[in-house]
């Protein structure tokens, strides 16, 4: 048996619905036989009557409703059809969910699933990576699982967390990643993972870019250069300790992110390493992100817009040459 990243998300939701009466799913086109734009909830409405609910196309009200339900003791999981449409719900997520506990001491345990990131042909409005934007605001936990195993355990953990969680699942990984089976072990939320040990340079990255980084590390290994790859897993909280430990081993840092370049996760990681671990660095830290334009539709443009193995490798060479 094998499990894809998408199936792991479905299995996690099945588990949650089965084990926790407080859980219900709320989103567009997720119910009935249809089971969601990406089929992440296929079969669940039949299996769990009354707990997988289709909503009107009202992102703001979907999240608002989930907030109310969470404050009343439920554990709603909201599915955005695409991460990009969560912009409509920014107000509820940032200003209502993100402030609720601070203001009233009443926790707001909602989980918002964001089908994120680029796939070719998806264009400006179906490709965005929004983890940096959500992390900027207080009161939210922001997760970016990069493996089948993490997709499964981190979604289950997300629902158990008493705070609002933005769960960024990468659409490219839905079908491309497979594991032999569902995991039986897990790393806690908030811990980064060294997915490949190295000695010469650390690539710190998250989500689908973990796999681009691994491919680049593989190439360099043939030439005797060992790149360490750190998968952040959780963007907020950010595991600064694991990043610093990696930089302590390699002395060189390259941050890779699929999101837009201004600010964001890569900038945050570099800021932390510069302020906490300046003495560990043998070269100036570097970063590579998507370009500062909307995400293009055409595959030729799209593959150049986001970091890819070629552009990452060029950056690696640059940092190593310093």
């Amino acid at each position: 048996m094998s499990v894809t990243y998408l199936e792991a998300i479905r299995e996690a939701q099945t588990y949650l619905l089965r084990e926790d009466k407080r859980v219900f799913l709320y989103g567009q086109d997720i119910a009935g036989k249809f089971g969601g734009a990406f089929k992440a909830t296929k079969g669940l409405a039949e299996q769990f009557p009354g707990r997988v609910l289709n909503t009107p196309i009202s992102e703001d009200a979907m999240v608002g409703t989930a907030i109310g339900a969470a404050m009343e003791g439920m554990r709603p999981i909201v599915e955005m059809q695409f991460a990009d449409f969560s912009s409509i719900a920014l107000n509820q997520i940032l200003n209502n969910a993100g402030t609720q506990y601070w203001r009233t001491q009443v926790p707001c345990p909602i989980t918002v699933r964001l089908p994120s990131g680029g796939t070719k042909g998806s264009g400006p409005f179906h490709s965005q990576s929004m983890e940096g934007l959500y992390s900027h605001y207080p009161g939210l936990v922001v997760l970016t699982p990069a493996t089948v195993e993490d997709a499964y355990t981190m979604l289950i953990d997300a629902v158990a967390i008493d705070d609002p969680v933005i769960y960024c699942e990468h659409k490219y990984l839905y079908y491309h990643l497979k594991a032999d089976a569902l995991p039986t072990e897990k790393l806690p939320i908030g811990k980064a993972r060294v997915v490949r040990p190295g000695r010469d340079l650390s690539i710190v990255t998250n989500s689908a870019m973990v796999h681009e980084a691994l491919a680049v590390a593989q190439q360099f290994s043939a030439d005797g250069i060992e790149i360490e790859v750190v998968d952040l897993r959780s963007v907020k909280p950010l595991d600064t300790d694991t990043v610093l430990a990696s930089v302590a081993r390699t002395g060189r840092l390259l941050c890779v992110g699929e999101a837009f370049p201004w600010g964001g996760v890569t900038a945050e990681v570099i800021a932390r390493v510069a302020t906490e671990g300046f003495h560990l660095l043998d070269a100036a830290p570097a970063r590579i992100n998507a370009k500062d334009t909307p995400i293009p539709y055409h595959p030729n443009l799209w593959s150049e817009h986001r970091p890819n193995a070629k552009t990452i490798a060029a950056k690696v060479r640059q940092v190593l040459a310093e």
Binding site: M62, G64, G68, A69, A70, E72, M74, N91
Partner: peptide, 25 residues
């Protein structure tokens, strides 16, 4: 008694969610 946020209209769905959850319970 919910604590309003400033953004007008934002409390309506929160009340809906509270009521929905009460029904579910």
């Amino acid at each position: 008694q919910l604590a309003m946020i400033s953004h007008l209209g934002a409390m309506i769905p929160v009340v809906v969610g509270k009521l929905l959850a009460k029904r579910m319970k």
